[in-house]
Deep mutational scan, measured.
Amino acid sequence: DIIVVALYDYEAIHHEDLSFQKGDQMVVLEESGEWWKARSLATRKEGYIPSNYVARVDS
């Protein structure tokens, strides 16, 4: 799995977006363009995230 960590807070604009806080970790489910589908490890919610707001966690 690709794990990313939030670099900034993000408040969902559309209902399919995923809100998150700086430091939150998410599993990337699908990478396509600038918006990635991800699942929050904390809340288990899924939605689209702006890929420029996150960084990959080296395992």
Rank of each mutant, 00 (worst) to 15 (best):
Y10M: 03
W35R: 14
R39G: 03
E46M: 08
E31C: 15
R44W: 13
S19E: 06
A6Y: 01
D24I: 02
A42T: 13
E30I: 11
E34I: 13
E11D: 12
Y53R: 08
D24P: 01
W35Q: 08
V27S: 05
A38K: 01
L7Y: 03
R44V: 06
S19D: 06
D58Q: 11
S59F: 12
T43D: 08
R44L: 15
V27F: 08
E31G: 13
E30H: 10
W35E: 03
P50K: 07
V54H: 02
P50N: 10
Q21E: 08
W36K: 06
A6K: 01
Y8E: 07
L7F: 03
E16H: 15
S40E: 07
W36E: 01
V27T: 07
S51Q: 10
Y48D: 03
E31K: 14
V27W: 10
S59V: 13
T43I: 04
G33C: 08
D58C: 12
F20Y: 00
V57E: 06
I13E: 11
K22C: 09
S59I: 12
I2S: 09
V28Q: 01
L29V: 08
V28I: 14
E46H: 07
D1N: 13
R39A: 08
H14M: 08
A12L: 02
A12F: 03
I3D: 01
R39I: 11
A42Y: 08
Y48V: 05
H15T: 14
L7Q: 05
V27H: 07
G33W: 03
V28K: 02
Q25S: 08
A55C: 12
S32K: 14
L29E: 04
S59Q: 14
H14N: 11
N52K: 13
A6M: 04
E46K: 04
Y53W: 07
Q21V: 11
D1K: 12
S40T: 07
I3T: 06
R39W: 10
Q25T: 12
R56Q: 08
F20D: 01
E30K: 08
V54I: 06
V28M: 04
I13K: 13
Y10K: 03
V27C: 09
S40V: 09
D24M: 05
G47D: 00
G47A: 01
L18M: 10
L41T: 08
E31T: 14
V54F: 12
A38E: 02
F20C: 03
D17S: 10
Q25A: 09
D24L: 02
S40F: 06
E31R: 13
H14E: 07
G23E: 03
L29Y: 07
S59E: 11
V27R: 07
S59L: 12
Y48E: 02
Y10I: 01
S59D: 11
V4I: 09
K45L: 12
A38D: 01
D1A: 14
N52R: 12
L29I: 11
L41H: 04
R39S: 06
L7G: 01
Y8W: 10
G23D: 05
S59W: 12
V5I: 13
A42V: 15
Q25F: 15
A6D: 00
Y8G: 04
I3F: 08
L18D: 00
E11I: 14
D24V: 03
I13H: 10
T43Q: 05
K22L: 07
R56H: 09
G47K: 01
I3E: 03
R44F: 15
D1I: 14
R56V: 12
I13S: 10
K37N: 05
S51H: 09
D9L: 03
K45S: 08
S32N: 14
R56N: 07
E30A: 09
K37F: 15
S51L: 06
Y53Q: 05
I2W: 10
V5A: 04
K37C: 11
L41K: 06
R56S: 07
A38R: 01
H15E: 15
N52S: 15
S51T: 06
H14L: 07
G47T: 00
D1Q: 14
P50M: 06
H14A: 09
V5H: 05
D17W: 14
I49V: 08
Y8M: 11
Y53F: 12
I2K: 12
K45R: 11
Y10L: 03
T43R: 03
S32D: 11
G47H: 01
M26E: 01
P50D: 06
H14T: 10
L7K: 05
M26L: 13
D17G: 15
D24E: 15
Y10W: 10
E34P: 11
V54N: 00
S19F: 03
I3G: 02
I2T: 11
G47N: 01
R56A: 07
A55Q: 13
Y53H: 09
M26D: 00
V54T: 04
R44N: 15
R56D: 04
V57W: 09
T43F: 03
A55H: 09
G23H: 04
E30C: 14
A55F: 08
H15D: 15
G33L: 05
V5E: 07
E31H: 14
V54G: 01
E16N: 14
V57P: 06
D24R: 01
W35A: 06
T43Y: 04
